[in-house]
């Protein structure tokens, strides 16, 4: 579903991501693990079509990703961001936020679709006309997930979707993400530094360090703490 081949990303002269080749199958949940500066967020931005200064080949399903504004990408993948406080427009109600993608693409039955989306992420109807500041962090993240699903994309990009949440709220959001994936056969591409979260949500992972993939592993290898690379072992040792 997602194929990266020899992807190199540059900021000015410096390459922040070097010859990364990855492939994620349809319906799989994949994690890109690394610390800040490893380039993991940069890869996510490229997949989201927000950066054009990359070389190599990227395919999403049958679609070849263009350098620059790519209209087809909208229906293929959407993103859930890290910060539930920064990812929702502060002056727009839940209803407006969820209706917007429908309005942009001229999709009808908006009332019904908004209600369905809210139900799918477990948001009660009473939240529909609230503004983001009237919601808790977990509720906001549910709105962000619902927004990403409004256009029914097969791929969801997840940018540390729970790292800004309390642990008990993290559990709720992780459960929701897992249930949505099971129900809809979504493909997840998650960026994170949290190995236990990967262990819960993902099937496969790649470890990124200074713009290079140091190790690809299955989640079983993670569970048995059987990483081959020294850096992978180091990460494990920090994750108590």
């Amino acid at each position: 579903m997602i194929d990266l081949k020899d992807v190199t990303i540059r900021y000015g002269d410096a390459a922040v991501v070097n010859n990364v080749t990855l492939s994620v199958e349809y319906g799989q949940s994949f994690a890109l693990v690394g610390e800040s500066g490893s380039g993991k967020s940069t890869i996510l931005k490229v997949l989201a079509g927000q950066l054009s200064n990359w070389s190599g080949r990227i395919r999403l399903g049958e679609h070849e990703l263009a350098h620059g504004r790519d209209k087809a990408l909208v229906r293929l993948c959407q993103m859930v961001f890290q910060d539930p406080y920064g990812s929702l427009h502060p002056r727009k109600s839940v209803d407006a936020i969820l209706s917007e993608p429908l309005a942009i693409h001229g999709i009808g039955q908006r009332d019904q679709r908004v209600q369905d989306a809210m139900a799918a992420v477990g948001l009660a109807r009473k939240f529909r006309f609230r503004l983001p500041h009237q919601l808790s962090g977990g509720q906001r993240q549910r709105v962000a997930i619902a927004r990403a699903l409004m256009l029914d994309p097969p791929v969801l990009l997840l940018d540390e979707p729970t790292s800004a949440l309390d642990v008990s709220v993290q559990a709720e959001v992780l459960n929701l993400l897992k249930a949505l994936q099971e129900d809809r056969g979504l493909t997840y591409f998650m960026v994170t530094h949290d190995l236990p979260v990967v262990s819960f949500l993902c099937d496969r992972l790649a470890i990124l360090r200074q713009g290079r993939v140091v190790e690809e592993a299955t989640v079983d290898q993670l569970k048995q703490q059987a990483f081959r690379s020294p850096y992978g072992q180091e990460l494990l040792s920090h994750s108590h």
């Binding site: 989201a48 927000q50 990408l73 993103m79 961001f81």
Partner: peptide, 25 residues
């Protein structure tokens, strides 16, 4: 901000983003 990235990812045109998302703020 992330909400600007989000609206761009939804395929909104520049004009729409400016008028409906930037101006109100």
């Amino acid at each position: 901000a992330e909400f600007m990235s989000a609206i761009r990812m939804q395929g909104a045109s520049h004009a729409r983003i400016i008028v409906r998302h930037v101006m109100p703020l």
